[in-house]
Structures are given as C-alpha cells and as structure tokens.
Design a protein around this nucleic acid. Structure first.
Length: 579
RNA sequence: GCCACCAUAGUUCAAUGGUAGAACGAUGGUAUCGUAAACCGUAAAUAUUGGUUCAAAUCCAAUUGGUGGCUCCA
C-alpha cells in the first residue's frame, strides 16, 4: 500500500496548489495522506464551503495536466524561511525541522512547491482521474491544539481505481444504515427532546427493555462474581470533589453547582468518591478485602455541545460501575479477573474481534497526573503484566491514562467510523491515600487499599448505541423488545391465537398479538422490519392440527407444539443465546 | 466550545419571493385474507423571535436543535 500513500500524498499537494490558485493569499499548512485519502489544512483567505468543492476539484483536474514528477531540493534554513516568508505556519514547521537537525526539503511539481518530507508518486499521469474526489470541508485546529487558530480542512477520498473508490463510497452508505441513531428512531428505542436538553436521553419503552435486560444481566453476573450493590446520591457538597481532586480538573465538564443553604452542591459526574465513602463508612480489615462495590450510578457531565453524538456521547448516563478495594497482594489478580469478566460479557454478546488498549501516561502531559512517581511506575507495571497474563490481545498507548492511574479501554467504532471507549478497567494506587482509606492488615498495621475502577459494560447509553450497530437492530432474543409476534391469518383463528398468546405471556415472554385490520403480508412486513426474532402465523391448518409454525429471522420451524416452542425460547433467553 | 453546513406533517421528501403538496405512519370505515406494503375517507407541518418586502417556507439576523469534522472523552 506504499504506492497508495504516495498517490494520496501527491493529491494533497495538488489540493493545496489548487486552493492557493483559487484563494490567493491563503496560507497552506499541512497536507498528509490518510486511510481513505488525503486532506489539506489551509488558513483560507475567504471561506470554503461544501458548495465550493466542485470548483476546487475542477481546478485540480486542470492543474494535474501540468504536473509530472516531483523535484526535490534541499534548502538552508535561511532559504526556506525566505521562500515561505508570508506563511507563519511553514515558518513554525521549518524551525521544528531545524531543531530536529533534519534536512529542509522542498518538492516541486508544475509551478507549485511545498515544504515536504517526501513520498510522492513518480508520475502524476499515473493517477486515474476518476479514482479520487473531494469529500467534505471541516474545521481543524492548527497542530491539533484548541488554543490555536481553526483552519479549514478539505478532505479528499483517493483509491487506486474508480471501482475501489465507488466500493468505498457504497460501503460508507451501507454503514450508515447501521447507524444507531437511524435504527433507534425506526425501532422506537430512544429519543431526545429539545425542551429537555441536549444529550439527555429519553428511553422509550422498547429501548428501556434493552437497558433493563442488560442491567439485570450485569446484576446477576456481578452477584456471582462477588460484588455487593450500593446506592449513593446523585448530588453532593462540593467539598467531596475537592477531596477527590476532580473539581479543579473537571469543573468545565460538570453541571454548574446548585446553591442552597449557602453551600454548593454538584451533580455527580462519576461515582468513585461516593464508593470511597462507602468503604470508609465502616472500619475495614484485610478480611473484608477484596471489597467489590457496584452501582448503576446516574452521572451527568456537561460535555461540549459539539461533541454530543446520538447515544455514544451524551450528558446524562447510567454507568455499569463498580470499585474494587484490594490489598496490595490482591490487586493484580482482581485486575485480571475484571479482564476475564470483560471477556465473558463480550463472548455472550458475540463480540469476537477486539483489541484492548492499555492507556499509560502521556510523557508530554506529565503534569496532568497526580500521585507519586513510584506508585505510577508500579501501577503501570502491574497493569502491563496483568494484561499479558490475561492473554487478551492489547496494545499500549502512551496517552490516555486517568489522572489517578493507568487504564485498560475497549475501543469501539461507530458505524460512521468514530471511535469511542466502551468499557474501562483502571488501577488506582492514588485515591485511597487521598481519601484516607485504610484497612487493618494481619500484623495490625494500617494500610491503604488499592482501587480498581471498572465498567465492563460502560455507560448503558454508549454500550447500547454500540449494540444497536453491532446487531444492526436484530437483537438476540433475550434483548429483543418484542420476542414473539403472533399473526392470526383471519378472525377465524383469533381465539386459538389468543390462547397461544396467553401461554407465552404468562411465561414472561414479550409477545405481541397482531390481529390488526391489515393484510397478512403487511403484518409480516411490520414484524420483519421491527426485527422481531420469532413470528408465528396461525391459520386453520395450525388450529386443526394443534401445532404451530414458527419463523425465525432465518429459519422456519414447522409443526412444533406451543409447549416445545415455549421451552425452546425460554432456554434461549436463559442462556442468552445469540441468533 | 471551535469551523462549516442543515432545519417543511410523527417519518422520508416536494414546493421561481406570489394558493404549502406526496408517500408511509396515525385515525374512521370496507374487505377476513397463508408469508415483506389491500381499498376508500379524515386529521396533521414551514423550529423560535425579530427584520427586509405590496407579498417570506424561500432573503437577512439572533436563538434553539441537528449533521460532518477539530478539541475533549464512558
């Protein structure tokens, strides 16, 4: 794919050149190749909107005819600064190159020269005219820093052939059909309301079934895995968040305080400090550890309005949260157990291919992290070893650690390709000290527990958003809002249909009897569009033979009795079988 | 939050600055039907506020909400 990268990079040059011609006085900055094409970030003299893309594309087609190869030239710092004298961005880049003691190279094709490390196609004529197109306009901060000026980024798609480009575009369109926002609307799972507020989910009855099923599963599982449930308030006096250290760091993403009786109360953005208070409520012995405290805590975060995204990024969220307080000796095993718990959950949900990311400290933001160096080193060592011991595939990221400790994240990608953290498992050697938590060890000495923060099912908002896309709305039986639809062909079979409905209903199956005034074909269509896993059509044949025909999403089970169907579906629900 | 764009029945879409329409859905009725849309009728909308104009869904501004990115993040 080296060649593809060269093509994309060359096209970025062409894009930069075209923008300069159409918008004289603009300052071009950086234009790399990316996974599906290329972009160029420009400080535009004027304004580029989506409607202008065609114009730029036309210019590119015009210019490419005058380009052939890229000529390389090495410049001295002075020459380079002179060459790019009106461009402060290039000036910054040149100084950075000089600081790294690298050559300053400029590549020229046609009458366009750009500061560039190299990596171009040999001959521009080899790029097929219909294998690329401009895609969209976006904003991007210079050097990715929000304190800097926002530049205009023009994205382009580029592939080796026209067919590949079309296939990519087609695939993107298909992916959009899985978008949880679309499916959520069609299947009536959730909604938002302007008057209630941005990012505050309204779970409709059908979506709420999924949420509750997931919750029940987690409660059942955590009980088996030795967790105890607690309930803590959603608001607290501000001092709690000073104790935790969250307030100075996260104030911006917390809802403003409620002032009452001359005190400030905050709505909690996370549950941790509350669980620490549960720990310290009663004296603890090493015999009490590991102590696993779980809660479906209601958290609210005032996220930037621009970053909200369907269910994947919301302002109000219910987290599958728990904190595990351990002795120093137990911490590693507990961390591994949480990884195993993740594996169990993913297996049941049919999530087979995944890679965990172990987020360590970012050396560039070392000030962000609290606590002692020795604890950090230990925590990073322990988590790395635990990951290895677990056998779960993972990669290390030297960024993204929480301010109190390293974390293992499960990254998911939305149907349109955005990435999110779905689950998390964090080792914290710091907060225990901060909250003055202690337990009495065997020898009578007081020790600070280590804390594991974990949410294998993340927030249910995001996790269900992910599951909607994962299953494309066709949930396994146990999660399906409607599990069975019964369709009597005509009024003549209504009574028999009702008896089957009653049997299933009495056995806690989410069954619907659709005897509405519509044609059978229409009612079947409705059931299929609603992704109902089982459909039972009742006609005279069934009524007389006292058996039923059950259709799954893919199969047809003929002539089974309602008793054996009930047994089958109950088993599938109990075992949370995928289908 | 920042850059760009978008906003018409519940939904998906129409409508040169000059009478807001359709389909599905909802609802009332007719047909009682064997595997992905039966037929007839009814109700229902220009996000909000202000401005330009003889006249605004259409032009302008602000607000609200959404979309694609950037930054941030479960």
């Amino acid at each position: 794919m080296k060649n593809m990268e060269h093509i994309r990079h060359s096209l970025a040059h062409l894009l930069g050149a075209s923008i300069l011609e159409l918008y004289p006085g603009s300052k071009i900055t950086l234009g790399p190749a990316i996974d599906n094409g290329f972009y160029y970030d420009v400080d535009v003299n004027g304004k580029i909107t989506d409607a202008d893309l065609q114009k730029i594309e036309t210019k590119m087609h015009e210019l490419i005819k005058t380009w052939s190869t890229f000529e390389k030239k090495v410049l001295s710092k002075e020459e380079a600064l002179e060459f790019f004298k009106d461009n402060i961005y290039k000036e910054e880049l040149i100084n950075a190159i000089v600081n790294k003691n690298e050559d300053i190279t400029v590549y020229t094709s046609g009458n366009f020269s750009d500061l560039c490390r190299g990596g171009h196609i040999e001959n521009m004529a080899d790029i097929k005219g219909n294998s690329w197109k401009l895609d969209r306009v976006a904003g991007a901060y210079w050097r990715g820093d929000e304190k800097n000026k926002m530049l205009t980024r023009v994205y382009g798609l580029a592939f080796e052939t026209k067919e590949e480009l079309e296939a990519y575009i087609h695939q993107q369109e298909e992916a959009k059909k899985r978008d949880h926002r679309e499916i959520g609307k069609k299947l009536e799972l959730f909604t938002f309301d302007e008057e209630i507020g941005k990012g505050l989910t309204i779970w409709l009855p059908k979506g709420n079934i999924i949420k509750e099923e997931l919750e029940n599963w987690a409660k059942e599982t955590e009980k088996i895995w030795g967790y105890q449930r607690v309930t803590t308030p959603i608001i607290t006096k501000e001092s709690l968040f000073y104790t935790s250290g969250h307030l100075p760091l996260y104030k911006e993403s917390m809802y403003a305080p409620i002032r009452i009786e001359e005190e400030n109360y905050y709505i909690k953005p996370m549950n941790c400090p509350f669980h620490h208070k549960v720990f310290s409520a009663l004296p603890k012995s090493y015999k009490d550890l590991p102590l696993r405290l779980a809660e479906y805590g209601w958290c609210h975060r005032y996220e930037d309005s621009g970053s909200l995204f369907g269910l994947m990024r919301v302002r109000g969220m219910q987290m599958n949260d728990a904190h595990i307080y351990t002795t120093h000796e137990q911490a590693m095993q507990e961390f591994i157990d949480v990884i195993k718990l993740h594996e169990y959950y993913y297996k049941v949900l049919g999530i087979e291919k995944y890679e965990m990311e172990l987020a360590l400290r970012d050396p560039k933001k070392i000030d962000k992290y609290h606590g002692e160096e020795a604890d950090w080193e230990l925590a990073e060592k322990m988590t790395t070893e635990a990951m290895k011991a677990s056998g779960v595939p993972f990669k290390i990221a030297n960024e993204g650690a929480a301010f109190y400790g390293p974390k293992m994240d499960f990254q998911i990608y939305s149907s349109i390709g955005r990435s999110f953290t779905a689950s998390t498992n964090q080792l914290d050697l710091y907060m225990g000290k901060r909250f003055g938590l202690e337990y009495t060890d065997k020898d009578g000495s007081k020790k600070t527990p280590y804390i594991i923060h974990r949410a294998p099912l993340g927030t249910h908002e995001r996790f269900i958003g992910f599951l909607i896309e994962h299953f494309a709305g066709a949930f396994p039986v146990w999660l399906s809002p409607v599990q069975v639809t019964i369709l009597p062909i005509s009024e003549h079979q209504k009574e028999y249909a009702e008896s089957i409905y009653k049997t299933l209903k009495e056995n806690n199956i989410r069954v619907e009897l659709d005897d509405s005034n519509e044609s059978l074909g229409k009612r079947i269509r409705n059931a299929k569009m609603n992704k109902v896993p089982y459909m039972i059509v009742i006609g005279d044949k069934e009524k007389e033979s006292n058996v039923i025909t059950v259709e799954t999403r893919t199969d047809k089970l003929e002539g089974i009795t309602k008793e054996s169907f009930l047994e089958k579906i109950q088993k599938e629900i109990k075992e949370r079988t995928l289908n």
